[in-house]
Design a protein around this nucleic acid. Structure first.
Lengths: 139, 139
DNA sequence: CATTAACCCTATCGATTTACTAGGGAATAC
DNA sequence: GTATTCCCTAGTAAATCGATAGGGTTAATG
């Protein structure tokens, strides 16, 4: 299951991409429009900012904005920040590889074999989808 | 993250597919060979049996066996039993569709749009992988 | 320079899920 | 009829999730 954090994060990013103008967008406005608990959203946008996807401006008339054009924001990066590693087991993770504690032999491990394929196909989707793609209405 | 239940279940199924002979395999033997807590494995094999993937025989010399040749056991079925719906959000689930409680409009929802693609690509892997594929040593 | 509006940060908390474990019942081979 | 094996229900410790609380810091504005 996708976490609420990821769901809210994606919705917020899409909202920003769709309505971004000259001035940054405030948490309260995003929360209201996308029906997201404001305090929760605040913490999510904060992690997106710390990861470099969003920028922020403090004080009156402050808010959040995209650091790059939405066409250049890849889902691989967004999903890693929001949901964590894309692989479903650490032993097939590109960025966070770790040997499974309970695995005897990776070469004969069926879990490894299957999850490697799932990772590749999922990665293929995320690498070929940008925030701009998600921001367009459905075909 | 993949649950231990799914991991153990896949390993057990692979073990059965690899070593199946005339007589069924006992929980204790599978648990020992695959390093799985026996009582936990017992409950996992039980759900696999209830779902029709495994058959069982009680009493002395009892145990578990595949109900079909491993070439005919698809990962779509196995994964649905062990891990639940393949879709990461209910609104893109084929078998368990449900409207997301927090979604205003599915047609413009970016989460829906992205997860639909992920579901399709994952499903494509599971539909084209059988237990026999997983049971062969790595290429 | 005071006030207000906004982001920034830490801590906490209830509910749910996960990964097991306990304990016994029911069927079958011998 | 007894040992062996699967069958079933409950329970539980630990982790994670989804959110909330409460205040600190920064910047615009008059």
């Amino acid at each position: 299951m996708l976490s609420k954090k990821t769901k809210y994060g994606l919705k917020a990013l899409t909202f920003i991409a769709r309505t971004e103008g000259d001035s940054p967008l405030q948490v309260a406005e995003i929360a209201k429009n996308e029906q997201i608990p404001q305090k929760f959203l605040e913490s999510i946008l904060l992690t997106l900012r710390k990861s470099g996807i969003l920028g922020s401006k403090k004080g009156k008339h402050g808010g959040y904005y995209l650091r790059q054009p939405s066409e250049e924001i890849l889902m691989t990066d967004v999903m890693r920040v929001l949901e964590g590693p894309i692989a479903m087991v650490p032993c097939v993770s590109l960025n966070y590889y770790e040997k499974c504690d309970d695995c005897v032999d990776e070469d004969t491990c069926s879990v490894n074999k299957l999850m490697l394929q799932v990772r590749d196909s999922t990665l293929n989707v995320f690498r070929n989808t940008t925030l701009a793609d998600l921001s367009r209405p459905k075909d």
